[in-house]
Design a protein around this nucleic acid. Structure first.
Lengths: 196, 196, 196, 196
DNA sequence: GATGAATGAGGTTTCATTCAT
DNA sequence: CATGAATGAAACCTCATTCAT
């Protein structure tokens, strides 16, 4: 019923939805998207039945969309707060550092994010494109100021995000991975790849 | 029965397994891992029963392991044939170029590969590690010769493979993506990131 | 709570129950009994929760019983007001004409009625029997006066009601059905079948 | 799998499908369409799981379509074998008598048929129309020969089928109903309503 | 009185797997 | 070797009903 209603959600409802989304993120991160059934999520959330999930989310796709949106929102909030000042080169470095810090503190979020991307819907793909577009903008700006060498900004943005994704996956997979060392190397590598 | 038998597989058996694996790759690439049911794979393979798949593969995990192994084998064969000659820097460039060429000619293989990585088992993770190890070796070799700057070879290998994966995903997702242009930029970028 | 209470219902309560019953009739008529869930009925009634329906009706069966009772009451009121004067033959004709008029003006009531009959409970079957009994009485009366030929009144009553039900279903199903023409033919047919 | 295959069904398959259809008819007749779940049907058929039903019928709608088709086929076979000879009036009487006999011997078929009609699909509605069309044809033929009075054949066909349906429902509902007596009265009634 | 939240049973359907033939 | 049939677990989802507020 609720899942089909319109209007403002109440505080209780928002709390439950957030709880379910959190449980979904953890379940996906730990067991993979394929095994993240309503049943598994309900258990992780301490709910007594999968019915409650359906009560709050009209469809599983729907839930997953909110999961991804939440992850991206948390991520964006964290990263943009730290990559807003200075020249493009500085901001790029700050962006990457922020990414790596986020990985350390929100491991599950990012593992889940990677697992969700290939199950992503149309609108989510557009969201990913828009993320890349912002980075593209930053790079183009740096080129205009002469900080960056002449590359195709859109492609380089893709490269940088790919590197970030690789770090996420490695951090997720390998428990002995040294994230701090990797961050330093990543910054150097990207600097060399981009500076004029 | 066969799936539990020991001893040498017959020629017919190997042919059937290859046929099923091929169909699985195509199905995963086109519909995603989630929708790659035995039923879908059997249809794609022109088989009249899913029973035959179970007959040849003890378990679905088992089949997927062979799918991934096959993809990696095809990939390795293709790439190593083109990255064996010259200095490490030359071979690295050839490796990347070969990768991009492989994307163009084996799109389905690579899309399936990405889709399988997070359903990957322990042993498959080890296989991925060994792939990275080979690249690590190449990079270390280049450093010893003074071609490459001093970076942590293992991390740089991870970066390079991440870049490759990103190109795969983008090529798979975006139909208007210009793979040739991307290849050129990728080579430049990696050269700048690695050379002394 | 209320649904289990005893004693006189308040005016508000009666209004709410009527509102719910009306919404149920419309929903059944438009979507069929199978799809007439509490949720659908609540939406049709403009209620914000299915809980309110359960509050006023102890059980779904209970609600459906009241729905059927309401329909039959409305129907009886409409028809008996027009079939009370004259000889049995005249009243029979008036009864049929009234039925057909009722179809035109209360389409939803009658469609719902037909849809409810096979979900009908014991007591509802008895109600239908009593309706037929009244018609039986009328027919027997006409026989005593010599207006009608000698048939088994109870069976003939069943026939007449069957004809009426058929007209309802046809009117409900076929949008091009000419109800007025059908009414005329029906009157003739019944007259020929009954008159001495 | 099988439910989606093409080509000729095997003997075993036809037998299983028939068994399931028979169980569905009995379940609908005894408990009503609403309560005729796959689970109930599987139990009635002595199957070990509902999965087998889905294996043979792609969809519940699909199964119900076959149920209705089977009923109509059995019915048509029974009735047309007995209503083919003589003048239209004779055949009409034979048709009605055959209907009543069928009711006695195939009670469940007919109860289920009535319960399915309002859940009927487009194509099933067309089938019902075509049944009425055949009767319409018979009536028009009788009019041309002068056996029947001038009525609208299509409407009269609807009336006759409505009478038949009423008898079915009454026979289904009332265990003490005297079908033989009803048949006699029905024949007389229809004769009076139709003859010139 | 009314509402939103919660519950748990049960709905249809898909799936990997087994087995007789 | 291969097939069709069968199985039962588990998937997502809907529903009537209960209850605290």
């Amino acid at each position: 019923m609720r899942a089909r209603k319109q209007g403002e959600p109440t505080a209780i409802e928002r709390a439950r939805r957030a709880q379910i989304v959190r449980a979904a993120i953890d379940t996906i991160a730990e067991s993979g998207y394929t095994r993240a059934s309503f049943s598994a999520i309900a258990t992780a959330a301490g709910l007594s039945s999968t019915g409650l999930i359906s009560y709050h989310f009209a469809t599983k796709q729907n839930l997953m969309a909110e999961v991804l949106a939440t992850i991206l929102a948390d991520f964006t909030e964290f990263v943009t707060a730290r990559a807003t000042q200075g020249t493009p080169a500085t901001r790029l470095a700050a962006f990457l550092a922020a990414n790596c810090d986020f990985i350390a503190s929100h491991r599950n979020h990012l593992i889940a994010m990677l697992d969700l991307q290939h199950a992503a819907s149309e609108s989510q793909a557009r969201q990913a494109d828009s993320d890349r577009a912002k980075l593209t903008e930053l790079l183009a700006d740096g080129q205009r100021r002469g900080e960056f060498r002449p590359f195709t900004p859109d492609l380089m943005a893709g490269f940088i995000l790919s590197l970030r994704n690789g770090v996420i996956r490695r951090a997720a997979t390998d428990p002995e991975f040294d994230l701090a060392a990797c961050t330093a190397e990543l910054l150097t590598t990207v600097r060399l790849a981009t500076t004029a």
